[in-house]
Simulated assay, not measured.
Amino acid sequence: MSEHKSQEEMVKDAVEEAKAKVAEEQTEEVQTEENPETVTEEEAETASQEETGGEAKEPAKEGSKKFFGKKNKKDKKDEKIEELTDRLTRQMAEFDNFRKRSEKEKSQMYEIGAKDVIEKILPVVDNFERGLQGLTEEEKADPFVEGVDKIYKQLMTTLEGIGVKPIEAVGQEFDPDFHNAVMHVEDEAFGENTIAEEFQKGYTYRDSVVRHSMVKVAN
């Protein structure tokens, strides 16, 4: 019975000793983490001797302690904040680019639709002009003709108000960006590369050509 008890006591003593040893090691680890830059002179001297083949060197200076310590790391919260800030900045830039691109596409679609409508109205304008140009002075005095002339002028005023303008042609220098040459003539009355006659009037809408002028070019 006494032998059995003595064995139990021995086991208990061994357990207590192991616990004490683990506690001591944990305490040393905590102290090392709290003071990572602290290095004893003996350790510094030993490390220096190992690197230089056993020769003793002067004690390390204060600044050299950092070489043996752990590097300061960023806090995880700061890293997360930087990551989220960078992500937010990128998303805001992408959204701004998307907004500008959408506005540009919207404006282009509007102009394409407007030009398409104007192009369909221009033949009506051509017919008004042909009909009014073929009238005599006596016929122009007719109330019906006067009414038609007023409608034509109102239509042209409305088109001008939305940005539609006729292209100047006769007497101007030929410009392929605005004029379409369908005939060529040699005539000393006109200068070189000058438009002598206009067969069909051209128009622009907000500085872009809706229809080129159909012209005859001299010289």
Rank of each mutant, 00 (worst) to 15 (best):
T157K: 09
R211Y: 00
D86C: 03
I121E: 03
G202C: 00
M1C: 05
R99I: 07
E24G: 12
M109N: 08
Q26G: 04
F178C: 03
E51A: 14
R211F: 01
F178M: 00
F144E: 12
D187I: 04
T27M: 08
A169H: 01
I112T: 10
K65M: 14
E25W: 06
S208Y: 06
R90G: 15
F95D: 10
K12H: 13
G54F: 01
Q154Y: 06
A93N: 14
A60S: 15
E129I: 14
S48Q: 14
R87F: 06
K77M: 13
S213Q: 02
A20Y: 04
E3Q: 15
E3A: 13
D207G: 07
K140F: 04
A181P: 05
E9H: 07
T194C: 04
T38M: 13
V30Y: 09
E119Q: 15
K66Q: 11
E9W: 06
K80T: 13
L155A: 03
P143D: 04
F144R: 11
V124H: 03
L132Y: 04
G202R: 00
A18F: 14
E9F: 13
A218R: 00
A189I: 10
V185K: 03
A18Y: 07
Q133D: 12
R130N: 15
Q31G: 14
E186N: 11
E17M: 14
E160H: 05
V170L: 06
V182A: 04
N35P: 00
G131Q: 09
G147E: 15
G131H: 07
E146A: 09
E33M: 12
P166E: 05
D75I: 11
K140H: 09
K216M: 11
P166G: 06
E62W: 05
Y110P: 04
D149T: 12
E41C: 06
N180Q: 07
E25G: 02
E34I: 15
T52M: 10
E28Y: 13
R101E: 11
E17N: 15
Y110G: 08
L135G: 04
E33W: 06
F95K: 09
I118G: 02
A47P: 02
E119I: 06
Q91K: 15
F128K: 05
I195K: 03
H212G: 03
K21F: 11
Q108W: 00
E138C: 03
L135R: 02
T89I: 12
N193Y: 05
K106P: 01
G63S: 12
E105L: 14
K165M: 09
I81E: 12
F67L: 09
Q133I: 05
E24W: 09
A196G: 07
L159K: 00
E129Q: 14
E160V: 03
Y205R: 02
E8V: 13
E138W: 00
G161S: 13
A44I: 03
M156L: 14
A218W: 01
D149N: 13
T38R: 11
M92A: 15
R87M: 11
E139W: 05
Q172F: 02
E16S: 08
P123W: 08
V170H: 05
E33A: 15
V182W: 06
R90N: 13
K120F: 04
N72M: 12
G163E: 02
D149I: 10
A196Y: 02
Q91P: 00
